[in-house]
């Protein structure tokens, strides 16, 4: 049976939910080996966190270069693992870092690359939603080892606990991959809410909040949702940049997206258009976001959201 490599996904030291999704997609193609790239001395800890989904084996490589030199160092080692394992495909989480690792790995290994897949089938056909989700595309890599980045929260994951065999291997990072130096890293402020790209429900606020996100946050919390923001809100400093949804922020496709006081600029839509259900609260009946809303309330978010929050509490009890 052929092997499929997945690059284990971590935010800081925390393994993400995306790992089980990558493993689930990979297992349709072959036996999944997760590649865990960890700082020196932490391989075992990192590997232990990769414990959900159909993962048969873990290859651990330790180097301090992964943090100190970033994308180039990770791609360097991943390309070497590909050369020794000859996998049928390589799956990587589709975010800025993952896509850049995929980019450099593709060049190094002479392989074609597909980014932002929402699904991958047994014959290594990737499904993508392009043009703001208006078109479904199926494509295949025609050269080398298919390198595919998979969008978080898109594949229905098998999250069964697994106990893969762990093997430590050693590869060195070449000097060419150490040209950029990371001197400090600050992880995103997380708070107690789910991660934006992983959340089943996202409640977001825009300029219409006028800087007061309390109604948005209260509604998010009663739904167990993540909070997002439009660029108008992040630019104004009302919410950190890492919460921005849109073309130059995060792409989310939750079961439910609730946009409050957001007009629906094309750049915002680009990040949320593929959400399964879209709810819009806006006091302007002409706001363009209503065009793609499944349910819209024309009204003041400061009146509608508190009532909805109370309504959900009542529904639950």
């Amino acid at each position: 049976m052929s092997t499929v490599l997945m690059l284990a996904d971590f935010v800081g030291t925390k393994a993400t939910k995306t790992n089980a999704e990558l493993a689930t997609a990979g297992a349709r193609i072959g036996e999944v080996t997760a590649v865990v790239l960890a700082p020196v001395g932490q391989g075992a800890t990192y590997a232990a966190a990769i414990n959900r989904g159909p993962i048969a084996k873990i290859i651990v490589v330790e180097s301090d270069s992964f943090l100190a030199n970033g994308v180039a160092a990770v791609a360097d080692v991943l390309a070497q693992v590909i050369a020794t394992e000859s996998p049928a495909a390589v799956l990587i989480a589709s975010h800025a870092f993952g896509k850049e690792v995929a980019a450099r790995t593709a060049v190094k290994s002479g392989s074609g690359i597909i980014t932002d897949a929402v699904d991958v089938s047994a014959d290594i056909t990737a499904t993508q939603l392009v043009f703001g989700g208006s078109t479904t595309v199926h494509s295949k890599v025609s050269h080398g080892t298919p390198i595919i980045t998979v969008r978080p929260n898109s594949v229905d994951a098998d999250t069964t606990e697994s106990t893969p065999a762990v093997e430590t291997q050693s590869f060195s990072v070449s000097d060419a991959s150490k040209k950029a130096t990371v001197t400090s890293s600050q992880p995103p402020v997380q708070g107690g809410r789910p991660e934006l790209t992983e959340a089943n429900i996202v409640v977001s606020g825009g300029r219409g909040t006028n800087g007061d996100f309390s109604a948005v946050e209260n509604f998010a919390d009663v739904l167990g949702a993540a909070v997002g923001a439009s660029r108008a809100a992040t630019d104004a400093g009302w919410y950190p940049h890492s919460y921005q949804v849109g073309q130059t922020g995060k792409t989310v496709s939750p079961q439910l997206y609730v946009a409050n006081g957001i007009s629906g600029a094309i750049q915002h839509r680009a990040g949320m258009q593929t959400s399964k259900t879209i709810v819009v609260v806006n006091k302007d009946p002409e706001a363009p976001l209503f065009e793609i809303a499944d349910f819209g309330v024309v009204g003041d978010l400061f009146a509608v959201l508190p009532k909805a929050t109370e309504g959900i509490k009542a529904h639950k009890s």
Partner: peptide
């Protein structure tokens, strides 16, 4: 180095419900 097998427009989102508060 990758080939598109097919591209199909997705059905437009059905017109949603809009209520005035």
């Amino acid at each position: 180095w990758s080939l598109v097998a097919d591209a199909t427009p997705r059905p437009a989102r059905a017109t949603g419900i809009k209520v005035t508060d």
